[in-house]
Amino acid sequence: MYRNFQASVTKIAPHNILALFRGETEKIISLSIDFDETYITAYLYNEEIKTKNKGIKAFYQSMLKDSFNRLIKPSLLREVRADRKNWADLESINTFEINLRELLLSPPAGMQPTLAIDPGFRTGCKVAVLSETGQFLEYQAIFPHTGAAKQKEAKNTLKNLIQKYEIELIAIGNGTASRETDQFVGEVIKPLENQPIKVIVNESGASIYSASDLAREEFPDLDITVRGAISIGRRLQDPLAELVKIDPKSIGVGQYQHDVDQKLLKKNLEETVESCVNYVGVDLNTASKQLLTFVSGITPTIANNIVSYRDKNGIFNNRKELLKVSKLGPKAYEQAAGFLRIRGGKIP
């Protein structure tokens, strides 16, 4: 596309600018900015040379020409490149913010027992069962795409898990083997009296989270692939609660995000996350520890205690129950209560 590419610097799209600069950086293409040099030199001659003496005039002309070629022209080109790059960065980051906001504010499926599947061919599908609050319950590996015998075994395993935990939602990652796994799951649930709803979930960044220190702290005894499946399931239950655990740049909010100003990108995306949390509030019964820390009055320690209390005692039915959480006193409760929601509660 960019072989012999030409465009006006005022009309070229932001993503084209970023692509061109990336190509130049990787030495795949070379860039040049062409403009009417005679217009500028003529302007300089007319504005700066006032003498009518031919000898002096010729000297001034040669001096201005040399100055233009050595100093003015390179400076102009640098300014134009910097201006266009800065503009492309701002426009692209704005697009990334919009994409991230839409992703974070995706409607949550809510508190329903969920079976999450990270699909795969040769290595099999990793299946994680989550409670209605996102608590990890059980893990299985199935191999539905490696022969009839394995497929039959996988069907039985999946059916047993669905019935054992009364699964209402099935989250399937949209990576490798997603379509085949979706078809397989459809065959499994078709004869069931109470069919769960299956949903394809965007798994961008799940592998980043599953290999992070945060995931290791949360699930120290689980394999990295299991953590990825858990993340996929929780994204369906409450996208905001799960996605705040991941560096916004790793979620996949647009092309060329690694080509823009990284400090500005990080700052703006983090502000977008905070804005989303403040805009919709936090579901107390599905919120992750990381999401709870965005709420006023809740420290990382208190957030961890809330999740531990919820895992041990079940869902919160009333905000007042928060006062039973260790280290969450009346002052912290007063600050946090307005940002916390209880789906289906008497005072949501």
Rank of each mutant, 00 (worst) to 15 (best):
V201C: 06
R101Q: 13
N86D: 15
T225M: 11
F143K: 13
I40V: 15
K324A: 14
Q257G: 00
G228M: 07
L18W: 05
G281R: 00
I49G: 07
G175V: 06
R227E: 09
D89T: 10
N99M: 12
V127Y: 03
L284C: 03
K11C: 08
R84E: 14
K312H: 09
S178K: 02
I347F: 09
S62M: 13
Q195S: 10
F184G: 05
V127A: 01
T272V: 09
G205K: 07
T146Y: 02
N202I: 12
S30M: 08
D261F: 01
D259T: 06
G314D: 06
P330S: 06
Q135H: 02
F21A: 05
R122V: 11
Y139A: 05
F5Q: 04
I251P: 01
N313Y: 09
I28M: 15
G175W: 01
G345Q: 05
D247F: 03
D221C: 09
G110T: 10
E168D: 09
L90H: 10
I56S: 11
F219T: 08
D247R: 04
T114Y: 04
D221V: 12
A19W: 07
Y333S: 06
I162P: 02
S308Y: 04
L77K: 07
L269H: 01
L161H: 04
Q255L: 05
K263G: 05
K263A: 02
K73D: 10
A13H: 12
V282F: 00
Y279I: 04
R310I: 07
D66G: 12
D213I: 13
L18N: 02
Q255P: 02
K52G: 14
R179Y: 07
L269R: 00
D283F: 00
I246T: 00
S231D: 15
N156L: 12
L130Y: 01
A116I: 06
E203D: 15
E138T: 02
E193A: 13
I12N: 05
K327Q: 11
P107K: 15
T25Y: 08
E132L: 07
L64S: 05
D66R: 15
R70Y: 12
P74F: 11
A229G: 11
K152C: 06
K85F: 14
L265R: 03
N156F: 08
G110E: 06
D311Y: 14
Q112L: 10
V127G: 00
F121Q: 11
A241E: 00
S30D: 13
I12Q: 08
A149C: 06
G124R: 01
P248I: 03
T146E: 15
S308E: 12
M63Y: 14
D83G: 10
A128I: 05
F294D: 06
Q151R: 15
L265V: 03
T286K: 00
I33E: 08
A19H: 10
N16R: 01
Q237E: 13
E271L: 04
V273P: 00
V185D: 08
I17L: 10
Y165K: 02
K327T: 14
N304H: 12
L71R: 13
